[in-house]
Amino acid sequence: MKYLGWDELIPGAILFSFSEEMEKDASEILPEDRPYAETNSHEAYVGDWRVLKPVYNRDLCIDCQFCWIYCPDVSIISRDKKMIGVDYDHCKGCGICVEVCPTNPKSLLMFEERIDNDDALAQWPEKE
């Protein structure tokens, strides 16, 4: 029997994160520029886990990034030290981002899934 070399083995239990070889490590490439493979969970959807969704109010945000650091699902998108939105494909609706938000009123609040984001912003509570 001919033994297969490491490179000849058929990928069985091996999953690839990226569809092509990258010149740099992933830590130097932002997610939007990465060549994600089909087998990367970035391509999957867990939005249907949510009962309530977090809605983000840019006007009140102070960019403290607490929501970014404590989000368990990599769903708070921050670029250039600014919080720019919520990734609804990966957010499971745990609500940690709302709990850790320090502004008054909060710049992230949980709303029912069926409510449109613009309607949610219109009914934002006043300062307490």
Binding site: L30, D63, P72, D80
Partner: peptide, 26 residues
């Protein structure tokens, strides 16, 4: 500070199946 830290490009992806609110992924 946290603002510096937030420029990191995450190498751990969402849509994993950990419970909502799991501290493991944090």
């Amino acid at each position: 500070n946290l603002k510096d830290f937030s420029t990191s490009a995450d190498r751990f992806e969402g849509a994993n199946l950990l419970c909502p609110g799991c501290a493991h992924s944090i």
